[in-house]
Design a protein around this nucleic acid. Structure first.
Length: 551
RNA sequence: GCGUCUGUAGCUCAGUUGGAUAGAGCAACGGCCUUCUAAGCCGUGGGUCGAGCGUUCGAGUCGCUCCAGUCGCACCA
């Protein structure tokens, strides 16, 4: 059992026994929360349990704290201090620290991977950009956030599955075909009218060029409707391939790519029928409307247009129903904040279908603004002048781009400083972390050359410097950090943690030498480095950032 | 007008679910390389947590009202 659990149990037991003895009134125990105090003068761990209980027990918190304190003993405990309004500060015997660290080291590469959780299966859907253009930096943030969240949940032991929803069925795909068609004709010197809602990106021209280089003017003289049909499939195939490659380059992969087409017509029809059957659909002006106002939406929404064609919402309802039907009990979607108006109606539809709306969690990602030379870089998908994800990767690299996307909470708008991201300087947090890892690896190389080894049973008790103890505590807090970050769906906590442990390492490194000190101490320090390097690598792995051996 | 998110040091942001004297990085200033990577370390200064009211032992955190910015409010996707 980990020390945190031992502590929590001891506190609960103390409170229960006090209740049993009639010192505390009978009642439900508050949740025991442990924290690492802001200052080391406040001990190794602290709890506000006495203050939390003050309300239910109707007692002075310090009195409660004293009572609990007097009932806790253990060979791991040095002493307990009561401080402030009623904090219980625990001072542990120092060997507890080393024992815990030894256990963490014994886990080896598995440290950081929490035991499998027997919860409902989670589906994380993210990116899901239309296959009609290039990914831009906004998609990049979604891709980084989604993949990091999947990694994080997996590390925390949740059963997770990831999916990309391909909008390959709507009118935008016809538009894609028409745009490619126009470029195709243009390139062959024919007259062409560019469609009004066409896609202007240069990738469309590239697609047309590729068709020509492969098949020449083979499609020129066929009927336009026939040509559009062929181009639709060719363009779609190519766009998907490009999307997949761009995302792989960005360390983003999916368990499944889900085609909207497979929903049509059966699953869409079934979903609408079901809504009709339970009275949540009505007809008006020739269209079928979802009674979403009944479930908190501010207006009802059309699901089947007056021309009989289902709306995007109808497909989306069918899709989310399908996710539940496939056995996922918890759905997490990552959307750009510009889609927030859509949240309410999808949730309303789920409610109307009888699903628990809280089982669909929609995380909204705030917008990204790029800055170069202190100036805002404007982006617009339509004109094709935006900064694409591919360009971003070319400019700053996958590691820096991912880290920058992940260092802020999803809720806050992101100012992405391109100059900072590509600077190879100490201003750049991603290099700071990677440098810590590279430094450790360098020490290992050097140590091996000089035949300095960690050995089988390093004497960890020799690690008594303040910086060493701080680093050990940091390593020991990692799994708790994973647990919490996963519970909050907050990958940015891991980004911050990685930075903090790198900082603790650099601090240690400048105070303590590894090579050239007493043999036993050197072994213990190598063990500390091994633990540190592993945690940094693991944390960066969650973020999808590499941990280089050399820089 | 309605809704979303945001507002914390000069700048960019954290803030452990309501706890102890609000923290990092950058920028500014001052130190540290004959020894394992100076892409590093150590130190100094810097705050009306947008404003106000409320909830309570206790509020940056919760509620209400304002102010400012952001994104949205389709039989588009």
């Amino acid at each position: 059992m980990e020390i945190e659990d031992i502590l929590k149990e001891a506190i609960r037991d103390a409170a229960s026994s006090a209740i049993k003895d009639g010192v505390f009134p009978d009642g439900e125990l508050a949740e025991v929360e442990l924290s690492v105090p802001p200052k080391k003068e406040f001990g190794d761990y602290a709890t506000n349990f006495a203050m939390q209980s003050a309300r239910t027990f109707h007692m002075n918190p310090r009195k409660i704290a004293e009572e609990i304190s007097s009932r806790i003993t253990g060979d791991w405990l040095d002493h307990i201090q009561i401080a402030g309004p009623g904090f219980l500060n625990f001072y542990l015997k120092t060997d507890v620290l080393y024992d815990s660290f030894r256990k963490a080291l014994e886990k080896g590469d598995a440290y950081g991977n929490l035991p499998h959780k027997d919860t409902e299966r989670i589906m994380v859907e993210y990116v899901s950009a239309n296959p009609t253009g290039l990914l831009h930096v906004g998609h990049g943030r979604g891709a980084a956030a989604g993949s990091a969240l999947v990694n994080l949940l997996r590390a925390a032991g949740y059963p997770v599955y990831s999916e990309y929803y391909i909008n390959d069925a709507g009118s935008q795909i016809d538009n894609l075909a028409a745009s490619v068609n126009a470029r195709y004709l243009e390139l062959l010197g024919e007259q062409a009218v560019f469609p009004e809602n066409g896609y202007h990106g240069k990738d469309i021209i590239d697609t047309a060029k590729r068709i020509i280089s492969k098949d020449g003017d083979k499609y020129l003289h066929m009927q336009e409707s026939e040509r559009l049909k062929i181009f639709k499939e060719l363009a779609l195939k190519e766009k998907l391939k490009a999307l997949r490659e761009d995302l792989e380059e960005f360390n983003v992969t999916f368990d499944n790519w889900f085609s909207e087409r497979t929903l049509h017509p059966n699953m869409v029809r079934d979903a609408v029928e079901e809504l009709k059957a339970n009275g949540n659909i009505y007809e008006e002006k020739g269209a079928l409307w979802l009674r979403s106002t009944k479930y908190g939406d501010d207006k009802d929404r059309v699901v089947i247009r007056d021309n009989g064609v289902p709306t995007y919402l109808a497909a989306d309802i069918a899709y989310h129903k399908n996710k539940f039907d496939r056995g996922f009990g918890r759905l997490i979607n990552i959307w750009g904040a510009d889609h927030h108006g859509y949240v309410c109606r999808v949730k309303a539809a789920m409610k109307a279908l009888g699903y628990e709306p809280d089982k669909l969690e929609i995380k909204l990602l705030q917008m990204v603004s790029l800055f170069r030379g202190g100036e805002l870089v404007k982006m617009s998908k339509r004109t094709g002048t935006s900064v694409t994800l591919e360009e971003l990767i070319d400019e700053v690299g996958t590691d820096a781009a991912r880290y920058f996307f992940l260092m802020r909470s999803l809720d806050s708008q992101l100012d992405f400083d391109l100059d900072l991201a590509k600077s190879h300087s100490n201003d750049n947090p991603v290099y700071y972390i990677q440098y810590a890892h590279a430094r450790i690896m360098s020490v290992f190389r050097q140590a091996a050359e000089e035949h300095i080894l960690e050995g089988d049973a390093p004497k960890l008790e020799l690690l008594t410097d303040e910086s060493e103890k701080k680093l050990i505590k940091k390593i020991l807090s990692y799994e708790q950090e994973i647990e919490k970050a996963a519970a909050d769906c907050a990958p940015h906590h891991i980004a911050r943690f990685a930075y903090d442990i790198a900082s603790d390492f650099h601090s240690f490194y400048s105070r303590c030498r590894i090579i050239g000190v007493d043999e036993e101490l050197a072994s213990a320090r190598l063990a500390l480095l091994r633990g540190t390097a592993h945690v940094i690598e693991h944390a960066l792995g969650i973020l999808g950032v590499s941990a280089p051996d050399k820089m």
